[in-house]
Amino acid sequence: MSAVFFHCSDDKHVILDRTGAAMDLAEARLYAEQLARSYVMTPSVEDWRNWAVHVTDDIGTEIFELPFTAILGELHRGHAMNSMELALRPLRRHLARLIARCVALIDGVINPYRPELYYMRGPGPKCRARRQAALRD
């Protein structure tokens, strides 16, 4: 068993593992998956789709690379949603409902015409007067 280091990076960031751990290749693979899963499951605004775990030995030779997309699964490959987006979903729904109610309220103030107030619901007073006049004759 040799010392293995687990560095994480994307195009703009690098997280270095300065301590490392002594383990074989199978254990290193499991630990890399656990490490990637722990970063993905931590609530943050980071988009983890472009990140990867780079597993190196003690002299810096890369043993293997594990992309975070392998951990994220099929759902996140086509249309990824990080944990922050998932946490914000209910808030977005409530905000959309609030905006719809505000728009309806503003529409009611700006456009006060309500046709149900102007439609006749039955014979009016002039119609009754004509009928009564016709009955008297």
Rank of each mutant, 00 (worst) to 15 (best):
S2D: 11
A3S: 06
V4L: 08
F6P: 05
F6V: 00
D10R: 04
D11T: 07
K12D: 08
H13Q: 07
I15N: 07
D17G: 02
D17Y: 11
R18Q: 05
R18H: 06
T19R: 14
G20H: 13
G20V: 00
A21T: 14
A21S: 13
M23R: 04
D24C: 00
L25H: 13
L25P: 02
E27C: 05
A28H: 01
R29P: 00
R29N: 09
Y31Q: 08
A32F: 10
E33W: 04
E33S: 06
R37A: 02
R37K: 08
Y39N: 02
Y39E: 00
V40M: 11
V40Y: 15
M41L: 13
M41V: 01
T42C: 10
T42F: 11
S44D: 06
S44E: 02
S44M: 02
W48V: 11
W48G: 01
R49H: 04
R49Q: 04
R49T: 12
W51K: 00
A52V: 02
A52N: 12
A52Q: 15
V53K: 05
H54R: 13
V55S: 03
T56H: 08
T56R: 10
D57I: 02
D58N: 04
I59F: 12
I59M: 13
F64I: 08
L66E: 05
L66F: 09
P67T: 04
F68H: 05
F68E: 00
A70F: 05
I71R: 04
I71Q: 06
G73C: 05
G73K: 06
G73H: 07
E74I: 01
E74C: 00
L75A: 14
R77E: 05
R77F: 02
G78L: 07
G78T: 08
H79M: 03
M84C: 13
M84V: 12
E85S: 02
L86P: 01
P90W: 12
H94E: 13
L95N: 12
R97S: 04
I99H: 14
A100H: 06
R101I: 12
C102G: 09
V103D: 15
L105N: 07
G108I: 01
G108L: 08
V109W: 15
I110M: 10
I110A: 15
I110F: 03
I110D: 11
P112V: 12
Y113H: 11
Y113P: 02
E116A: 11
L117Y: 07
L117S: 04
Y119H: 06
Y119K: 11
Y119G: 05
P123T: 01
G124M: 08
C127A: 13
A129S: 09
A133T: 05
L135Q: 09
L135Y: 10
L135K: 08
R136F: 08
D137W: 12
D137I: 00
D137M: 10
